[in-house]
Write a protein that binds this DNA or RNA. Sequence first.
DNA 1: ACCTGAACACCGTTCAAGT
DNA 2: ACCTGAACACCGTTCAAGT
Lengths: 227, 227
Amino acid sequence: MDKKTPRRTRREESLSKERIIEAAIDILDRSGESGLTFRALSDMLATGPGAIYWHIDNKDDLLTAACDAIVARTVQAGASGAAPRDAIRALALDLFDAMEAHPWAGAALIRAGGQLPVVRVLECLGRQVQALGVPPQAQWLTVSALLHFILGVGGQNAANMQRVCGDDVARGDLLDQVAAAWSRLSPADYPFARSMAGQLRIHDDRADFLAGVDLILNGIGVIAAQA
Amino acid sequence: MDKKTPRRTRREESLSKERIIEAAIDILDRSGESGLTFRALSDMLATGPGAIYWHIDNKDDLLTAACDAIVARTVQAGASGAAPRDAIRALALDLFDAMEAHPWAGAALIRAGGQLPVVRVLECLGRQVQALGVPPQAQWLTVSALLHFILGVGGQNAANMQRVCGDDVARGDLLDQVAAAWSRLSPADYPFARSMAGQLRIHDDRADFLAGVDLILNGIGVIAAQA
DNA sequence: ACCTGAACACCGTTCAAGT
DNA sequence: ACCTGAACACCGTTCAAGT
């Protein structure tokens, strides 16, 4: 990451919101959120920074729109006729993978609040929760729990990735550093955290994420059974 | 929010990391994350921006340290001899309240990764999960699920609060706007989101948060029972 | 050791001027 | 309608110089 952008594609077509978003995703994937600059963006699009403002309101809008493009592709690709529980697990995993491929998207999703990209996820989750037989008055609650969990994991992964990009350490090294820091904590004050340092070094983010989703799905099962 | 800082407290004591963090929290609470500037901070401390760098590495460090101060107070105040399940619920609620009182802290916590403020929460959760009888090989998983959920909710609340500060709308108005936007979605593509618009307007964030924690605790109960 | 504050290298955003 | 690019008002961070 943090590479320079060598190519300054000569412009053939005129500017459009779609072309701007596409270029923004390209920059974000290559250099992270700090690399997305109106100057870098206008440079890649062979125009001036002011031109972008004709198509986009501001940087937050741009980030949300880029995020929405990723989410739209993800939920659309995952559409299938699986059983509700499996469909939820598959959707969650697809989102996890998308946020790992585009680490900036996790942070952007969290910031996007009730806007379109989040609504897309909410809609998919909601349909499956209904199909699961959760009673209407508990649907909002279960969907928002799943949503919060998924976005929470995405946001934290995004933060970790950004730290990996910023410093010049690899992902495994970061985990080693954190694990080492936890081992150095006071045994009297942090017995549990110390005991988890080993697990941290060998754990599988993706498997833990899926296990977390299952935990919530188990909880939902309890609710559905009570109905 | 976004008020100016009228008082420029004359400096009696010399600078220290603690005094800087205290001032930073003050600014963050009053004007949000965008209001925390090295210039505003040094102004309030009656010094130059460079002086702060003698005590603090950079802005990220400052944010993490401010966040840690909030978390430390919160987990310390909540120490009690309650039953594990109640202790987890109480800790979660205390954190929710703290992140509502200091909206910037939610975003900062998510970005703090494996650092001290997060470890404090992890430690508290871990002890109670152990007391709950969750088998060792499932402890990491359950703790990190709770942690991700709690931080996810905090991060999203922080984002919402920031949006309320930025625009000149009240919190209730924001919810109304989002609900109205959801109602305007295509009935064919977003039936579930549309049906939730009403719930959104009358829902109770805090109650939903607690219900989410209970959902995970229910799921944990299933695991503990299987052991 | 600790503080000062000017200076550097940015950044998002605006806007008169062009086509 | 759409684009240009200079200009504005910032920002985090550094660093020679002071005490």
